[in-house]
Amino acid sequence: MTSKTIVLITGGNAGIGYETVAKLAADHPSTHHILMGTRSLAKGASALKALGSPSNVSPLELDITSDASIAAAVSQIKETYGKLDVLVNNAGTAGANFGDVVPPSLHGKDKTLREVYTHVYGVNVISTAVLTDALTPLLDAASPGPAKVIFISSTLGSIGTFVAGYHIVQCPWYNSSKAAVNYLSAWYSRVKPEWRVNAVCPGLNATGLNHVPLNEETHPKNGAVRACELVDQGAEGVTGTYSRRGLDKESGDVIPW
């Protein structure tokens, strides 16, 4: 197993995370082992069954908002595999009412604007940062290297795109959290030059984060494409980039920071 590429995808049991698990598992049946991060092993088991129970996918209980859960997951990865080759930081939230005017609602209850910002930043930024830091020793042990870390972001987090006239989406708590996620990506690309670290916008897809109707154009499988391209790049793959799916598999469609 340690000769395989070990991949962890947070929030891997649904939406874009699920589709990323599905694509990587199907594209690399004998070389990659995919850890499907899931807050509930029951949900992970259900998602695994929906995939057809491929032998190269294992659900991993991981709630990124819980230090205890992170510690347990890191310990399990270390004991089982001794390394982590790829981390896809996909788990996130937009707040329950994506794009609604404040006061939004979280978990069916009205919340103050402060509570919504705290919740969204707590998941998207703080928890993602804590998890990445906790996994650093295992990523440093990636073999053969380099380790790859992908932060799932959004074009809504692009300050350059926004000030250039991009349409206003009334969800500043989410948009600004993704700008912060972009900084985390840039930070790790600088302090860990031996890694390959990139931010990715999956595009507008019908997921649990929003109210977008599901069709072929908005299917979450489209959101997995760019992240999987980056996973597949070799040791000399790009790092320090911010992109989405494009015609060029190497550089993708570059997004201004």
Rank of each mutant, 00 (worst) to 15 (best):
H32D: 14
Y183F: 14
T31D: 11
I6K: 09
S243Q: 12
V225W: 12
S243P: 07
T31C: 09
K148M: 06
A73Y: 06
G99N: 00
P220T: 02
L8H: 06
S30Y: 11
Y121V: 05
A147I: 08
D27T: 11
A26C: 08
V125A: 10
H28D: 08
L230T: 01
L209P: 02
D67R: 01
G246V: 00
T128Q: 13
L8K: 07
A134L: 01
W173G: 07
V88H: 07
E79D: 09
I152Y: 03
G82R: 00
P213E: 06
S185E: 09
L87W: 06
P29D: 13
I159G: 04
K4F: 12
L24G: 01
N175F: 10
G11P: 04
H119S: 12
T65P: 11
V57N: 00
V197D: 00
W173L: 12
L214A: 04
E61T: 10
V116H: 01
V231Y: 10
V21P: 01
V57P: 00
A96R: 11
I70Y: 04
L84I: 03
I255N: 03
Y183W: 14
G52C: 03
C171V: 13
M36E: 00
K49C: 06
H28I: 09
I64M: 08
E236A: 15
E216A: 15
P29M: 13
T10H: 13
L184F: 12
G223N: 10
S153Q: 10
A147P: 05
A134S: 06
E250D: 07
H119T: 12
G92F: 06
V123Q: 04
L24R: 02
G99F: 00
F162H: 10
R245L: 12
C201P: 09
L204H: 08
Y183A: 11
K83F: 04
S176Y: 15
A91E: 11
W187T: 14
L87Y: 09
L60E: 08
N56G: 13
A141I: 07
T93N: 02
Y166K: 13
V238I: 09
G44K: 10
P202S: 12
M36Y: 02
A129G: 03
V101C: 15
G15Y: 01
I150V: 13
G95T: 05
P144Y: 07
E194Q: 15
N13L: 11
A164K: 14
P29S: 12
Q170N: 15
I152H: 03
Y18V: 00
Q76D: 13
K192I: 00
S153C: 09
C228P: 04
K221G: 01
A50T: 08
S185D: 07
T2R: 15
P213F: 04
I150Y: 08
N90I: 05
A129H: 11
G208I: 07
S177Q: 06
K78S: 09
P54R: 01
G246C: 03
N56I: 08
V102E: 15
G203K: 09
G237K: 01
V169Y: 11
D67E: 05
G240N: 02
A224Y: 07
A96S: 15
N210A: 02
A14Q: 10
P256K: 05
V149Q: 01
R190M: 02
P256H: 08
S177G: 07
N124L: 09
V163F: 12
